[in-house]
């Protein structure tokens, strides 16, 4: 269990809701849910969530910390914003789901094998390296994220797509060696480092 996780458990022993409010992006909205369920019914991936968004809100209120943070439900969010525009209370549900996912990741509780979790991390790493996404590398990283042999299989399965993209000049093998990038990559990295530092100091403040 990560150190941060232990700290958080200590700090918010009685109220997971308060922990979420303090630490999760847009978490202060969770209490405003009026239990209508329109978010859960609106989600295009709805059938694949073990706990649809409203249930997650209710679980947070009921203090089911582990169940929520280790859930792969939030990782099912396609960011389609259907729930947001339909929510009668204006909860930024998409962002809360992202926030919960991020928080779970930060605490080390996010399901390790969840493909979206993995992909999302790789995506971030990919984009922050040069400031711009390298689609080829991202794709390859993705295919191989479950190990080498699995990666070969996936690559083969995806080869037609790759080929199509390559033929139409929407994918270039050259990207593997160079690719697009920001000129001021170092400046970008400094910005991101600072942003992370500010965010972590806030979390420290909450948990201290």
């Amino acid at each position: 269990m990560s150190n941060l996780n232990t700290q958080m458990i200590e700090k918010y022993r009685n109220s997971f809701l308060r922990e979420v409010e303090a630490n999760v992006e847009e978490g202060e909205w969770v209490k405003m849910c009026m239990q209508c369920g329109v978010c859960s019914g609106s989600c295009p991936f709805g059938p694949h969530w073990e706990h649809p968004p409203q249930e997650i809100f209710m679980m947070i209120r009921a203090g089911k910390r582990d169940d929520v943070l280790t859930s792969d439900s939030m990782w099912m969010c396609t960011s389609c914003y259907n729930c947001i525009v339909r929510c009668p209370r204006g909860l930024p549900i998409t962002h809360i789901m992202h926030g919960l996912a991020h928080y779970a990741h930060r605490l080390g509780l996010a399901p390790k094998e969840n493909p979206t979790h993995k992909f999302a991390i790789k995506f971030w790493d990919n984009l922050t390296r040069t400031g711009r996404v390298n689609e080829l590398k991202l794709g390859l990283a993705l295919y191989f994220m479950n190990g080498f042999s699995e990666g070969i299989k996936t690559s083969l399965k995806m080869k037609d797509i790759g080929l199509g993209m390559w033929k139409t000049k929407r994918l270039s093998p050259m990207e593997i060696v160079g690719g697009h990038k920001c000129k001021d990559v170092s400046g970008l990295h400094k910005i991101l480092a600072k942003a992370r530092e500010i965010e972590e100091s806030k979390a420290q403040k909450f948990s201290g």
């Binding site: 239990q35 209508c36 369920g37 859960s40 019914g41 709805g46 059938p47 649809p52 409203q54």
Partner: peptide, 11 residues
């Protein structure tokens, strides 16, 4: 009609 019966989350 599409939705979720929130009493137990039945789609």
């Amino acid at each position: 009609l599409r939705g979720v019966n929130t009493e137990g989350y039945h789609r």
